[in-house]
């Protein structure tokens, strides 16, 4: 895990302001369900290189198994990883404060005009593009695992049960996990 920290300008500490600003971006650019994920990966892994692809996948997985709005969990964990409790506060504040005030004001204004057709068309186009972004982010996350057959199989199963089988998320999670971890355990034992 020290690899990402080293890459960050040889031990230079990430500033709280940079955390605030980055998660402000993640929040404002993330349209639609899961939109924040697209930007958190792009900014945290690709641009700033604060965390590795592997750490990002760890964080997303960890958050997936806990209650609440998962995307904010990425802010909590990335902040904690880089600067401890203060980092978490900075990332969460960046994620929430300004976007909440802007979104709330905009929302209350929009509620008076909710039925304008132009508005609904724009929102429709936005969500079609946002869906494509989310699919691409998932495929990018899968790339480091493409050499492991079991990983591809379990990713495919999770996708199929959820998107095609339309089973509830909790059922998919807790049904697949013991199997998936069990298979990974067998692989490790064989490798040893």
């Amino acid at each position: 895990m020290a690899r990402a920290a080293k890459r960050e300008h040889a031990g230079e500490v990430v500033s709280l302001g940079a955390l605030f600003a980055s998660f402000l971006k993640v929040s404002l650019f993330g349209v639609g369900g899961g939109g924040g994920l697209v930007w958190a990966r792009r900014i945290g892994v690709e641009q700033r290189q604060w965390i590795t692809e592997g750490e990002f996948a760890d964080i997303v997985s960890l958050c997936q198994f806990m209650p609440g709005p998962n995307i904010i969990g990425i802010a909590v964990c990335t902040g904690a990883r880089l600067r401890g409790a203060r980092g978490t506060l900075a990332a969460v504040a960046g994620f929430l404060l300004i976007p909440w005030v802007v979104g709330f004001t905009l929302g209350v204004a929009l509620l008076q005009h909710a039925h304008l057709p132009v508005l609904r068309n724009i929102l429709g186009g936005l969500s079609a593009a946002a869906a494509g972004l989310l699919i691409a982010t998932g495929i990018r996350m899968l790339m480091p695992h493409r050499g492991r057959a079991a990983a591809l199989i379990f990713a495919g199963l999770a996708f199929g049960l959820m998107a095609v089988g339309k089973l509830p998320l909790l059922l998919v999670l807790f049904g697949l996990l013991p199997l998936s971890i069990g298979v990974a355990g067998l692989e490790h034992r064989r490798a040893r």
Binding site: G132, L134, I135, R148, A150, A155, L157, A158, G160, A184
Partner: peptide, 29 residues
């Protein structure tokens, strides 16, 4: 930890791609 990770992460990724396609189904009229 590597064992748990190798079990956990692929399921998560499958779910991310799934939520993308579920969103697409709602958005793509």
């Amino acid at each position: 930890q590597p064992t748990v990770r190798n079990g956990l992460v692929p399921v998560t990724i499958g779910l991310v791609i799934a939520s993308g396609t579920v969103m697409a189904r709602a958005a793509d009229t």
